Computed example of a mutant assay.
Amino acid sequence: MGFGGNKFTWKRRRVVNTFVAKRLDRVLCCAHARLKWQEAKVTHLPFLSSDHAPLYVQLSPMVGGNPKRRLFCFEAAWLSHEGFKELLLSSWKKNITTPAALKQLQKTLRRWNREVFGDVQNRKEKLVNEIKLIQDELEQK
């Protein structure tokens, strides 16, 4: 299927005279699957905590949507923020129904995530991209 990203999917050693890198991991598909998913692509992701690079198989291109229509998800990382518990206590409205209070809390948490906590997914993607750039530069040497 081809690939994008680093040339190698496996590396051993960090010292120049004992360094070995190979493209061991691959994605194979039959002709029927290739016709069904013609826009499929494989990306070799950056090495993070293993000597193997993870492979990302995307069967169809990402479709941009309205971020305001995205489902609300609780982020476990919020619990580590020192001001989160206080935010919850001050934001919860006791004088309205629970569904209405949850809806109000959802709006508060979305704004707080954007303004105070920061968008974890965007920060994570930035860091992974930085790691990828560094690994690409090292691969060129």
Rank of each mutant, 00 (worst) to 15 (best):
residue 46 P to D: 09
residue 46 P to Y: 09
residue 86 E to S: 14
residue 64 G to W: 10
residue 79 L to G: 06
residue 90 S to N: 13
residue 23 R to L: 03
residue 39 E to L: 05
residue 23 R to S: 03
residue 89 L to K: 14
residue 38 Q to F: 00
residue 52 H to E: 11
residue 92 W to T: 05
residue 34 R to N: 02
residue 78 W to P: 13
residue 38 Q to Y: 00
residue 82 E to D: 14
residue 59 L to Q: 03
residue 81 H to P: 06
residue 37 W to P: 01
residue 78 W to S: 15
residue 26 R to E: 07
residue 53 A to K: 07
residue 91 S to G: 00
residue 94 K to Q: 09
residue 81 H to Q: 15
residue 25 D to S: 07
residue 89 L to W: 05
residue 79 L to P: 06
residue 74 F to S: 14
residue 85 K to G: 10
residue 78 W to Y: 11
residue 41 K to M: 10
residue 51 D to T: 12
residue 29 C to V: 02
residue 69 R to P: 03
residue 87 L to Q: 04
residue 83 G to Q: 14
residue 42 V to Y: 08
residue 45 L to K: 06
residue 28 L to G: 01
residue 95 N to W: 01
residue 58 Q to Y: 12
residue 33 A to S: 04
residue 26 R to P: 03
residue 89 L to I: 05
residue 57 V to S: 02
residue 48 L to T: 15
residue 90 S to E: 12
residue 77 A to N: 10
residue 91 S to V: 01
residue 60 S to D: 07
residue 50 S to C: 14
residue 64 G to I: 08
residue 78 W to R: 08
residue 41 K to L: 10
residue 43 T to W: 00
residue 50 S to K: 08
residue 38 Q to V: 00
residue 26 R to F: 04
residue 44 H to R: 04
residue 39 E to N: 09
residue 50 S to T: 15
residue 37 W to S: 00
residue 31 A to L: 01
residue 55 L to D: 04
residue 45 L to W: 05
residue 31 A to F: 00
residue 96 I to M: 01
residue 78 W to H: 13
residue 32 H to E: 05
residue 39 E to Q: 12
residue 43 T to E: 03
residue 54 P to Y: 11
residue 46 P to W: 12
residue 46 P to R: 10
residue 60 S to T: 09
residue 71 L to E: 15
residue 64 G to Q: 13
residue 71 L to H: 12
residue 67 P to M: 15
residue 24 L to W: 06
residue 47 F to K: 09
residue 51 D to W: 10
residue 86 E to K: 11
residue 61 P to F: 13
residue 25 D to Y: 03
residue 67 P to K: 13
residue 58 Q to W: 05
residue 96 I to G: 00
residue 79 L to S: 07
residue 29 C to P: 03
residue 27 V to A: 02
residue 91 S to N: 02
residue 84 F to P: 08
residue 41 K to S: 15
residue 36 K to F: 04
residue 24 L to M: 08
residue 85 K to R: 15
residue 26 R to T: 03
residue 64 G to D: 07
residue 94 K to C: 06
residue 75 E to M: 11
residue 69 R to W: 11
residue 68 K to E: 15
residue 73 C to Y: 12
residue 55 L to T: 06
residue 67 P to G: 11
residue 95 N to C: 02
residue 58 Q to G: 11
residue 27 V to S: 00
residue 37 W to L: 00
residue 35 L to T: 00
residue 58 Q to N: 13
residue 30 C to Y: 01
residue 69 R to E: 11
residue 65 G to M: 08
residue 28 L to D: 02
residue 73 C to D: 08
residue 67 P to F: 14
residue 83 G to E: 15
residue 32 H to L: 02
residue 86 E to Y: 05
residue 79 L to I: 07
residue 91 S to L: 01
residue 89 L to T: 05
residue 56 Y to A: 12
residue 46 P to Q: 09
residue 46 P to H: 15
residue 61 P to T: 09
residue 48 L to Q: 12
